[in-house]
Design a binder for these strands. Structure first.
Length: 288
DNA sequence: CTTATGACCTGCAAGC
DNA sequence: TGCTTGCAGGTCATAA
């Protein structure tokens, strides 16, 4: 999506901004009128990304920050195209070319104007200065990420999903990386060896690269690029969403477990639960 | 400081 | 058919 934005909106001057749903700019505290007024007349310079956040540089240390949440889309549409049902923000350009539309069914995503600040040698919108580099970042420090992960006193899947340790990993890629590493998500992060934690992050990186090569992971029409096309990575999933499907390694049925009000998918044989196995080995007794 | 929990939304599929 | 329930890819404020 960043690439698509860069290609379609860079060097174009904003002429008009329409906020059709206030919740879409809730993170922009000065409100919709301020958001629209300040954007007007500014050039979109380049599209940037860190983790799941996307932003467009507007020059002068200002950026339009975006997060797609769970259902957000950025679409480039010829003006006159009928409004999408969940169109939240429309940005028109002075060249009268295609407009940029933020469409978001569930409104978990949103846009905001933000100051660009310097943080650890990177230029970032201030509201996301706490977000860690993602594995695609040229300056990503694998050893530092491994240290951060292993310093966590929580289950490893929680740690993987913590965007302040490593960014870009969500529920799908976490489950896939854990499957590849043969780890159950409830293993304590601090209990992983350095080698295992490194392997886990390498698998996460591989998964993301493979997904990107295929245009992203899409289950339905909600997940599309700026041209409205969806990716095909969902056809390559080994764990996520594969409940009752055979594990690609051992054939055992993949199981689904509740996790933080959502789901985790894993192979019960390849990815044994830590406590259960320890308890049964150490303390299980059979009557004589 | 770290870690865990619920809230924020809409739409869809499954079950009754 | 129509209602209810559960679930969905994420983040953040708040509480412990």
């Amino acid at each position: 999506m960043r690439r698509g934005l860069d290609r379609h909106v860079s060097d174009r001057v904003i002429s008009d901004v329409e906020v059709l749903h206030p919740r879409a700019i809730r993170r922009h505290l000065p409100g919709a009128a301020d958001f629209s007024t300040r954007l007007k007349g500014l050039p979109m310079v380049a599209a940037q990304r860190r983790g799941k956040y996307l932003w467009v540089e507007l020059g002068e240390d200002l950026a339009m920050l975006a997060h797609l949440g769970m259902s957000g889309q950025m679409l480039v549409q010829p003006s006159g195209t009928p409004d999408e049902k969940h169109l939240r923000v429309r940005i028109r350009f002075a060249d009268d070319g295609p407009e940029l539309r933020f469409v978001d069914q569930r409104t978990f995503g949103g846009l905001a104007l933000a100051e660009v600040v310097e943080k650890d040698g990177a230029r970032l919108p201030e509201p996301i200065a706490h977000i860690a580099r993602d594995p695609m970042d040229p300056d990503f420090d694998l050893d530092a990420a491994v240290r951060a992960l292993r310093a966590r006193k929580s289950e490893v899947k929680r740690a993987l999903l913590d965007q302040t340790l490593v960014s870009g990993i969500g529920n799908i890629y976490a489950d896939e990386a854990l499957w590849r590493t043969r780890l159950h998500g409830t293993r304590p992060a601090s209990g992983l060896t350095k080698a295992l934690a490194t392997e886990l992050l390498k698998h996460a990186t591989d998964v993301m690269h493979e997904a990107l090569d295929q245009g992203g992971t899409s289950f339905d029409a909600l997940y599309v690029n700026v041209n409205g096309q969806s990716g095909y990575f969902d056809r390559s999933l080994n764990a996520y969403g594969q409940e009752n499907e055979p594990c690609g390694r051992c054939g055992t049925s993949i199981v689904r477990e509740a996790f933080m009000n959502r789901s985790s998918f894993s192979c019960p044989v390849c990815q044994p639960k830590p406590r259960a196995s320890r308890v049964s080995r150490g303390t299980a007794r059979r009557p004589a």
